[in-house]
Design a protein around this nucleic acid. Structure first.
Lengths: 219, 219
DNA sequence: CGGTACGTTGATATCTCTCAAAGCAGGTGG
DNA sequence: CCACCTGCTTTGAGAGATATCAACGTACCG
């Protein structure tokens, strides 16, 4: 079944040695976002939901997990998602770190690819939260903050300036908005004194990071 | 750099043997959604966008790829995403199948996990399209169709009925909508004769799949 | 010095959300 | 067996946000 059906005997026994059967009732939580990431599991029967939340408590389901599916975030120390049973469910639960150790004897490259894929997946899911639940202002401010963290350049006077590498159209597409809405939000950020614009909007000077952060994560 | 920096010498040489350097100008496309999935690549410098599209041509960026990042959909025969250069970019391109063959000598289990993670990632990205670009009607109709394909049960009279495993609230959350909007869309589907509802909306009988499909993928 | 693509701004339309109330189904206890 | 209670779903009216359509401004490039 799922994970168990497609591995060979050695690996299977290594797995079953560390796995424990566990039942979850409707509404019961397997793992909380923010807690230490101690578990991963294979779903024997039932349905679970994986959710992420905004700071002010709005919640977005980023995945549904059915029988045979694997659930858990490998390679991360802290859970960023909450896993909850939607119906009474039966799991085969593994301690995450021991589970990862079982994978240890394979080539470094596949390991790395797996890690990258996992990272991308987490990324994608975080983005779903934005697309599903955030307003235009939060999306734009959040995007700028991400850019700052990735590509910040110290300007001569010490202020932080970023070089927006994409057109307004691409930004809008990425954020699930229209060009006009993005533009209006940029104007708004400028009006609020959070940023200054140059080079036809392609260069952005962050005047008040705190203000940006407040706009990206409102209450 | 990226992929190349964290593998050992044997693997690195195996990789460089099958990789070719390639330059992409702004706007040039590395891979088209719908084409045979022949390539994957490591980005040496530049920025690419990964996009998916609706049937009627609306487009959603589901990922940005920076220097050091890996781009490509392993383990799938056909690309479902288009990869385009946002600025002049430098890549190290690999034939996908040969790249996968290099990974062949590792344990079956890590391979499988990797495949699953990749599948989840693709899933997540497809969902982003829904969240970013589809209207309420498309989201709900599409959700029902996905359910049908996963959990269809033949009713006594031959019609297809599905047992919605989640509350309206969960459905709404998953789809990035509110409960009320989902409910109104369900009512609308019923009014159009596409479905019938029972058990307080928890059981759905698909009367006209074609109608549902038309609503999920409008022009 | 245009021209062209990109960005901004404005007015209006549309869609979804929000708030509120009523309908339904299932479970519980009398 | 019925009445009631509780949670979920549906329906309604109105507010709010973003999309759309259209015009104008502005950088960059030859």
């Amino acid at each position: 079944m799922g994970l168990c059906g497609s591995v060979d005997l050695d690996e299977l026994s290594a797995l079953s040695a560390i796995g424990r059967r566990r039942t979850l009732a409707v509404g019961q939580v397997l793992a909380w976002a923010g807690d230490d990431n101690l578990l991963c599991a294979n779903v024997v029967s039932g349905i679970l939901k994986v959710t992420v939340s905004t700071a002010n408590g709005r919640e977005q389901i980023v995945g549904l997990v059915f029988a045979g599916d694997f659930v858990g975030q490998l390679f991360t120390e802290t859970s960023s998602m909450t896993v909850t049973a939607l119906v009474d469910s039966d799991l085969c639960v593994y301690p995450r770190e021991r589970f990862e150790r079982v994978l240890t004897e394979v080539s470094a490259m596949e390991r790395m690819l797996l890690q990258r894929t996992v990272a991308s997946l987490n990324d994608a899911r975080e983005r779903m939260l934005t697309l599903g639940k955030r307003g235009a202002q939060e999306r734009v401010a959040g995007f700028l903050l991400d850019l700052v963290d990735r590509t910040a350049m110290a300007a001569p006077d010490g202020s932080i300036s970023i070089d927006v590498p994409v057109s307004r159209g691409d930004m809008a597409d990425f954020l699930g908005l229209t060009i006009e809405t993005v533009s209006r939000q940029m104007t708004r950020l400028k009006a609020l004194g959070a940023v200054a614009l140059a080079r036809g909007g392609r260069t952005i000077v962050v005047k008040e990071r705190a203000a940006l952060e407040a706009l990206a994560n409102p209450d």
